Simulated scan of single mutants.
Amino acid sequence: MNLHGYLRPLQHQHTVPITYRFKVEGEELPLNGLLGEEIRIDFTGEKACIYCGRPIKKTYNGGSCYPCFRDRAENDLCIVKPHQCHYHKGTCRDPSFGETHCMQPHVVYLALSDDVKVGITRKTNQINRWIDQGAVAAVPIAEVPDRKTAGEIEVHLAQTIKDKTNWRRMLKNEIADKDLSDVRSSLMSRIPARYRDFFDDRREVCTFQYPQKKIPEKIKPLNLDKENRIKGRLIGVKGQYLIFDCGVLNIRKFCGYKVKVSI
């Protein structure tokens, strides 16, 4: 079984365990049934922008060429700092993108991947977001009308709860013994009064299980720029990582790389 083309993010579906598909351009390969199998990924040396398709020597922000990184709304600074959204100022790189992605209902959530973290995402994208982060549990704590408001609440809560995941601990299943419902209840008094009408304490905690045959004892990042060939036995998939017996490969980091995949 072989695939040949440019890498795209892993596709997934919320089942028990999560169902994963390895995507190379228009082709997809079911991954769950390949646990325990040897997989070889050869990097051809070619890269192309995931947005415009032009050949490039270097990717930016997970697969962009520099012009797309500089100009596209998906790569604006406010994507990583949503409280700085400038749609209302009329300076959005692409107002139509702002309308469909930023001026839409968002949720502020708590996720447990290694420890409890706070984050935000569009309401329609929350399950995908939690799986991409390798969360074993997640729960919305507030629903707001737009991305900027969600970002403001996140910044406030990040003063007491972290907003980053320790990806090494996440992949080793080193998860804090904390109850998200209890943490959510403790946050009510910390949310400024102007945001409390958005707070929601009625949501159920959503849980996730990932396809894994073995938990790696050590985490060795695999790098297609340094290793043109990666060959190992697939022992798990979590977040956007393929977990091999020889190391872990962050697929999102190498989107736009042209590869040959052999089973």
Rank of each mutant, 00 (worst) to 15 (best):
residue 174 E to S: 14
residue 219 I to T: 07
residue 69 F to T: 03
residue 88 H to V: 09
residue 87 Y to N: 13
residue 156 H to D: 03
residue 106 H to F: 14
residue 18 I to F: 06
residue 120 I to N: 02
residue 99 E to P: 00
residue 236 G to E: 06
residue 77 L to H: 10
residue 105 P to M: 01
residue 90 G to M: 08
residue 41 I to Q: 00
residue 137 A to F: 05
residue 196 R to L: 04
residue 156 H to N: 10
residue 76 D to W: 11
residue 146 D to I: 04
residue 135 A to T: 01
residue 243 I to N: 01
residue 226 K to P: 06
residue 192 P to F: 13
residue 48 A to D: 06
residue 90 G to Y: 08
residue 142 A to Y: 07
residue 156 H to Y: 14
residue 219 I to N: 13
residue 129 R to L: 00
residue 214 K to H: 15
residue 193 A to V: 09
residue 30 P to E: 07
residue 173 N to Q: 11
residue 84 Q to C: 00
residue 80 V to W: 11
residue 4 H to A: 12
residue 111 A to R: 06
residue 191 I to S: 03
residue 169 R to L: 07
residue 237 V to W: 08
residue 136 V to D: 05
residue 182 D to N: 12
residue 225 D to G: 10
residue 65 C to W: 04
residue 30 P to G: 07
residue 98 G to S: 06
residue 30 P to D: 04
residue 239 G to L: 06
residue 146 D to Q: 08
residue 67 P to W: 04
residue 195 Y to F: 13
residue 43 F to P: 00
residue 240 Q to Y: 10
residue 148 K to E: 15
residue 235 I to T: 14
residue 210 Y to A: 01
residue 194 R to T: 09
residue 242 L to N: 02
residue 88 H to P: 00
residue 217 E to Q: 13
residue 1 M to F: 08
residue 119 G to T: 10
residue 18 I to Y: 05
residue 73 A to L: 11
residue 3 L to W: 02
residue 31 L to N: 14
residue 131 I to H: 10
residue 248 V to Q: 08
residue 218 K to R: 15
residue 14 H to D: 08
residue 61 N to K: 15
residue 112 L to P: 11
residue 263 I to M: 06
residue 122 R to T: 08
residue 201 D to K: 12
residue 145 P to V: 05
residue 125 N to P: 01
residue 30 P to Q: 13
residue 132 D to M: 02
residue 102 C to Q: 03
residue 22 F to N: 08
residue 25 E to F: 01
residue 181 S to F: 05
residue 93 R to L: 13
residue 183 V to Q: 00
residue 135 A to W: 02
residue 258 K to L: 07
residue 68 C to Y: 02
residue 27 E to Q: 14
residue 168 R to N: 12
residue 216 P to F: 14
residue 216 P to T: 04
residue 133 Q to C: 03
residue 200 D to A: 11
residue 53 G to A: 01
residue 111 A to G: 13
residue 199 F to A: 12
residue 236 G to W: 09
residue 89 K to A: 07
residue 58 K to A: 08
residue 82 P to T: 07
residue 200 D to N: 13
residue 17 P to M: 10
residue 60 Y to V: 02
residue 68 C to M: 06
residue 81 K to H: 14
residue 87 Y to K: 04
residue 214 K to L: 14
residue 243 I to K: 00
residue 230 I to F: 02
residue 134 G to V: 10
residue 129 R to I: 03
residue 254 F to S: 04
residue 250 N to A: 10
residue 178 K to E: 15
residue 58 K to W: 09
residue 137 A to S: 12
residue 19 T to Y: 15
